[in-house]
């Protein structure tokens, strides 16, 4: 591990100034991903700027009905918060579906968003990887591709190809819930819609997000939304716990009494370089009856441009039917719950 200096500025603005001024400095929060990367030799910063205690660890109600989550709030505390559990259940479930109890006690809201792909080739310094070593190639394209992308990836040219997926569960729920990310830079604070925070690989897979070096996430705002209370998160993985998603779905449905879908929010995990807002699925659902045929058509609409990795050592074609099945199961579940709620609320 390369030697590094450790700094703990007095406030968030000081941390931003320090990292902005030093291309060799990085922020440290919970450390669950960064410390591993230091050990792997994947991250070689000259200075760690610890932001623990510099961003809020509180979850607060805002006057407009939003819930503000400080960037320093631990994943375990966010999942346990009563308001999150009742108003944004998909977020609580996504958090609880991620990592382990120990890691959730350590990982922060800001850090979770900025964790990096678990692509085995990205983490293996002996192999080509355009994300880690731009221009070197993508080893996953003809390698062990199982956790890799089916949507929005770059398959060619070879020098920029990247089929990595974003590993966060939390971020998938936040995308479905239309969260707003508050970011502090040297010019002050700006707000980035969560759906715009993470990038597709495009022609520069080395960059995961739109944040500039030195910009610090200070909070995540969850807007008020009646539909969010009827949200859920479903995760499919190779083992029942403590594994990254092969495919996941965060969704919310508003179904009218006559069975028509009034509103829908759908995001997919495990399928792309960023948490994937399934806008084609949403458009296909709204106004249609909440039936199996509608759900199937909605899944097809999203996957029409899908392109799996076709590797001789296992590709990601299996994810296409898995996305459909997971989406259908989630939408069925939400529809049944909405019906149950309506029945309960019937005065008769």
């Amino acid at each position: 591990m390369r030697p590094f200096a450790y700094e703990r500025p007095d406030d968030a603005a000081g941390a931003v100034a320090t990292v902005t001024a030093d291309p060799d400095a990085v922020f440290l929060a919970g450390g669950t991903n960064l410390v591993d990367h230091l050990r792997l030799g994947l991250a070689t910063p000259g200075t760690l700027v610890d932001v623990t205690g510099l961003t809020s660890t509180e979850i607060t109600d805002l006057p407009d009905g939003s819930l503000r989550v400080g960037a320093g709030v631990r994943n375990a505390d966010l999942a346990a918060d009563e308001r999150v559990r009742t108003r944004y259940p998909a977020l609580a479930q996504a958090l609880l579906a991620g990592a382990s109890g120990q890691l959730r006690n350590m990982a922060t809201t800001g850090g979770n968003l900025l964790q990096r792909t678990r692509c085995v080739y990205f983490q293996d310094l002996t192999t080509p990887c355009n994300k880690r070593a731009p221009g070197s190639g993508c080893s996953a394209l003809d390698g062990w591709a199982r956790h890799h992308a089916v949507l929005g990836a770059t398959h060619e040219p070879a020098g920029v190809a990247c089929v990595a997926t974003h590993p966060s569960d939390m971020a998938v729920a936040l995308v479905a819930l239309d969260a707003q990310v508050r970011v502090l830079g040297t010019d002050g604070e700006r707000t980035v819609p969560i759906g715009d925070l993470h990038r597709l690989p495009g022609d520069d897979p080395s960059r995961d997000t739109v944040l500039a070096h030195g910009e610090l996430i200070t909070a995540v705002d969850l807007p008020p939304s009646p539909i969010a209370a009827h949200s859920t998160y479903r995760k499919v993985r190779d083992r029942a716990s403590y594994a990254f998603a092969l495919v996941s779905v965060a969704a919310a449905l508003d179904v009218a009494d006559d069975g028509t879908i009034r509103d829908a929010r759908v995001a997919l995990g495990g399928v792309a370089h960023r948490p994937w807002r399934a806008t084609a699925t949403e458009q296909s659902l709204v106004g249609a009856p909440a039936t199996e045929d509608t759900f199937r058509a909605a899944a097809r609409a999203e996957l029409v441009d899908a392109r799996p990795v076709e590797s001789p050592r296992g590709g990601t074609a299996f994810k296409l039917p898995l996305v459909t099945a997971t989406l259908l199961a989630t939408l069925r579940d939400l529809t049944a719950r909405t019906a149950a709620t309506t029945t309960r609320e019937d005065p008769a």
């Binding site: 450790y6 440290l28 450390g31 669950t32 410390v35 591993d36 760690l48 610890d50 623990t52 375990a76 382990s100 109890g101 120990q102 890691l103 006690n105 350590m106």
Partner: peptide
């Protein structure tokens, strides 16, 4: 999880925690 300790009362992975922090 073999390195799990209670750090300020909460279960934590000591292998991913920098002492200086």
């Amino acid at each position: 999880g073999a390195c799990t300790v209670l750090l300020d009362g909460r279960r934590t992975l000591s292998c991913l925690s920098l002492a200086v922090a």
